[in-house]
Design a protein around this nucleic acid. Structure first.
Lengths: 203, 203
DNA sequence: CCCGCACCGTGACATCTGTCAGGGTCTACT
DNA sequence: AGTAGACCCTGACAGATGTCACGGTGCGGG
């Protein structure tokens, strides 16, 4: 009997996936959490064998949670189950020790198999997504450029970003300009969108 | 036996919800679709009693699908099940003839009850969301302002928007300025974010 | 040690944006 | 008929933005 931990911020989806997985004879959901920072404690308390983690969660993102969990309980495999097939997410999730990565677009009947494979130590990755991730390469942004883009996400002015990051206006403009150049965008907003779509703004 | 139609673009979520609902003795999922423009046909073909619709879907948004479905098959009740509790979505969904509106944050065990209530003709609405919707009022944006904001979403320049909408640069700037003023934003990007968050950019 | 590179800052420049004041057409309502 | 409001355009202006050139600081690898 494989013991499962479910982590997803949407209670309805979480419960529905629990119902789906509990229908399998060899699987059992032993814990459900709605926040990233509750993953490790729950996994330890219930000795989970496989953890299904969403990427977008309050408290802590799923990739960071996977990293912590991999350290705290190496026997527990991780299967990332996420809405967005961002290549950057996949890359970072694998680096964080995840055993599999599937998007919520995949047919429901494949989920149980994916769990079993991850439990056996096999890697489960969407082929199309893997190809995209390989072709696209790693994030071209420096840490600071990513910081600035993150701060620019909610639409503030240069002055707002400078205040938030304790930088000079000019420095913020330089980082933005550099990020715009690297992403091939023509606008700050476009650069933000591209970086988000590629999953470059996680950590 | 209440016959259900599920519409959600994420196959995994759709299948999981089907599993959850099929566990109830009086409910049966008779059809699943992944696109908004397939809702009406599927509902007619299977004579669904209740349709669970997501708002964000390819092909056609869930609110428009609800409107069409309400016309084509008035006996079929609609329960919107969506990720984002945007007040504007709720308002437009109810105007489109939806019988209920719940977010995916709600506990899984409440879903079956919500379906039954909607089937009986009762209204099911998240109280907090209803209050927010009432307090916030309707969209202050004119059609054109919404168009311009929609076109500004992907971060293009004024010239890009003007080309896309066959308008003059100055007119676009005027609409943007007006939208910025009405939303209380200080930047185009901020105005876009606010409008999206409030669900003002649907149709 | 020296080089490259990320990082922080300054100053200057052309361009883009957001705002304002106009003036025009159309529709809907009184 | 008159009024109000959405819609489109023009022109002008201050301020914000994106770009460039430049100098300076650390840190790691060759």
């Amino acid at each position: 009997m494989i013991k499962l931990l479910l982590a997803d911020d949407q209670a309805l989806v979480r419960g529905a996936m629990a119902a789906l997985l509990d229908m399998e004879d060899d699987l059992k959901v032993v814990a459900e959490v709605g926040r990233g920072d509750e993953v490790v404690d729950a996994a330890l308390a219930h000795e989970a064998d496989v953890a299904l983690l969403d990427v977008e969660m309050p408290g802590m993102d799923g990739v960071s949670a996977a990293r912590d969990l991999h350290r705290a309980l190496p026997s527990c495999k991780v299967l990332m189950v996420t809405t967005f097939g961002r290549a950057g997410y996949l890359r970072q999730a694998m680096a964080a020790g995840a055993g599999g990565f599937i998007v919520k677009d995949t047919p429901a009947r494949q989920l149980a198999d994916a769990v079993r494979r991850v439990h056996q130590g096999l890697r489960v990755v969407d082929p199309a997504l893997a190809a995209q991730s390989l072709a696209q390469g790693d994030s071209p942004l420096t840490d600071r450029e990513a910081d600035v883009l993150r701060s620019a996400r909610d639409g503030g002015t240069v002055a707002d970003i400078a205040r938030e990051l304790h930088l000079s206006d000019g420095t913020v403009r330089n980082h933005l300009s550099s990020a715009i150049g690297k992403t091939g965008a023509r606008t700050r907003a476009e650069a933000v969108r591209l970086a988000v779509d590629n999953g470059w703004l996680l950590s």
